[in-house]
Simulated scan of single mutants.
Amino acid sequence: MKALVLEERLLLTEMRISSGSRFLDLKRVAVDTSAEKTIVSAANAKALGMLAEEDVTDQGGVTKTCSSISVGPLKIKDFPVDIRELSEAGKLDGVLGLDFLKRVGAKINLDSMTLSGSRVI
């Protein structure tokens, strides 16, 4: 199980993403059941070496496959993420979308403010 917090009307958690032998802990990740894809901020993707400056355009980002993505005990290897500028969304490091939530069989418990999964990936 992974803890969730409600802050500024957003359901937030933490996420670890890796690319090759490098990893980064993202502290402010919105859990968004209306987002089709999982998103990582361009700044964090650059810090991991996942993209070059010219990869991100004003019209949107790019999709790259990270080595792994994990939220607490929920982990998926070779997972595609969208990389976008998230400056308009506040100080978010990323967005945990339906693609990840469905794949792990996520269960969001708002009473205990936790995220768990029913599948081992």
Rank of each mutant, 00 (worst) to 15 (best):
E8M: 10
A43F: 00
G49P: 04
A45D: 07
A45N: 08
I69T: 05
R84M: 08
E53T: 01
K75C: 03
A47C: 05
R16W: 11
I83F: 14
D78F: 08
E53N: 07
I83W: 13
A43C: 02
P80E: 07
T57V: 01
S18L: 13
T65H: 04
L86R: 02
T57E: 04
R28V: 05
P73S: 04
T65F: 07
A3R: 15
F23D: 14
L10Q: 15
D82M: 15
E14M: 12
Q59C: 03
V62I: 13
G72L: 09
K46A: 02
I39F: 05
P80D: 06
L24W: 03
E36M: 03
K64C: 06
C66M: 15
L48A: 01
G61P: 07
E53F: 06
I17S: 07
L6D: 10
E54N: 05
R9W: 07
D32R: 02
V81K: 13
A89M: 13
C66I: 14
V62W: 02
P80Y: 05
V71M: 02
L11C: 06
I76S: 03
A30C: 12
L11K: 00
M50S: 04
G61H: 08
V71S: 03
C66N: 09
R16Q: 15
A35S: 07
C66R: 06
V56H: 08
A35V: 00
I69Q: 04
S67N: 11
K77G: 09
A30E: 10
L51P: 01
S18H: 14
R9M: 14
V40K: 06
S21W: 09
S68K: 10
E54M: 02
A42K: 01
K46D: 02
R84P: 08
L48H: 01
G60I: 02
L86G: 01
K75N: 00
R9F: 11
D82S: 14
V31N: 00
K77Q: 10
G20E: 15
I39H: 00
I39V: 13
